[in-house]
Design a protein around this nucleic acid. Sequence first.
DNA 1: TAACTATTCAATAAATTAATTGAATAGTTG
DNA 2: CAACTATTCAATTAATTTATTGAATAGTTA
Lengths: 225, 225
Amino acid sequence: MVSMERIWKDQLYKEFARIGKCLSSPKRLELLDLLSQGPKSVDQLVKLTGMSVANVSQHLQTLHESRLVRSHRQGNFVIYEIAGLSVADFMVSLHRLSEKQLVEVQKLKTEILQNHLSMEPIALEKLLERMERGEVVLLDVRPQDEYETGHIPGAISMPMEDLEKHLASLPTDKEIVAYCRGPYCLMSAQAVEILISKGIKASRLEEGLIEWKRYMEQSNIQSQP
Amino acid sequence: MVSMERIWKDQLYKEFARIGKCLSSPKRLELLDLLSQGPKSVDQLVKLTGMSVANVSQHLQTLHESRLVRSHRQGNFVIYEIAGLSVADFMVSLHRLSEKQLVEVQKLKTEILQNHLSMEPIALEKLLERMERGEVVLLDVRPQDEYETGHIPGAISMPMEDLEKHLASLPTDKEIVAYCRGPYCLMSAQAVEILISKGIKASRLEEGLIEWKRYMEQSNIQSQP
DNA sequence: TAACTATTCAATAAATTAATTGAATAGTTG
DNA sequence: CAACTATTCAATTAATTTATTGAATAGTTA
């Protein structure tokens, strides 16, 4: 005989597992990360991930069924967005846990950033100090629409594709720091490579907007009486 | 041609998805929740979940491969435990997200706790106030080994199976509050039912030890200058 | 070392999931 | 309303996963 409690628990854990199932496909995780940066059309996501249209759409469907994303139409496009900030926040939790538990993630990160692109990221805390003292210019090298959705205060929008064109407009007396979507996005590293190759002093901020928000929430709480 | 960046991202997200895959099975989530309360032998887990031995063992294997649990032998038993507090914490994040996004979870929770067991939980904040004033006795109704692994300070261990025997030893001048493994464990609710049926004033704390810890971390941070 | 127990392995069948393709649909613009 | 585009649906195949069983293994105690 199966108890009422057993049935209830089975139903409950089945629901939790619905969220889990969404997180079991690499492609879906990538879509969630991209959508965490701001709303995007299916078409944009196709270009960003290199997947087929039908494939992207299907994954978005799955995410929609578990209420992790929502959508609305805008002209010819259907725009998808995450269903709330808690989703983006949860993704950061997942990244952190993965990085903590899985040596493989640590390896992958170190390999490409230290051995290949060879640069140490600047600590968020240090950046904020130096920005306050006016020693640093912070560049947001993501596409402009993501910058407009939200950015670290004080940052200047400088999408990757515009970078080389606008090199001249950068201040020469300050150090440049570039950031992008977060620890697993390589745009900021590539930007720093370009800057350094042009003889401009630059470094990379590993954190993205979401990680910055988390950090600020914690230190805001701390600075309250 | 597939870029180096694309390959790297695919590898990275594949790793994240390893964690996700662990979370895609209801039974594995239940095992993780149980292990969050303290180390347990495979045998104990079999009894707690009603699954077959081979099944439990297989799921534990999967969790082990993703470094979410670890194990060691103790006499005839192999004891499993979560691989770090961040795992338990992540489970709470998953519960919170699920509850926020999935109406179904909200429903399941309300149904059994309000319609069937009919009781409103006491807020954690209120409990702590009343405990300080000495108005309340807090009972930990989980098995004793879980209490010994860790418990809310000031709580008295009173495992479910001992409850009816030890009713007499409870103070009669104070209100009783019972807690257990957390929001999705029914032991505390059952304990309160028993107490009320004996004419003792009692209520349920929804939070478990892990949720209490989270709450305290936040308010500890807040109370620092 | 023998007996015992707990744990893991291996094999199976059922079920679910992922990726792909081409066609159908819905919505927008001129 | 016609042409156009973006999106979704449906069907297929391949691959993975789950649950279950019984047997094998490993470790402990007497």
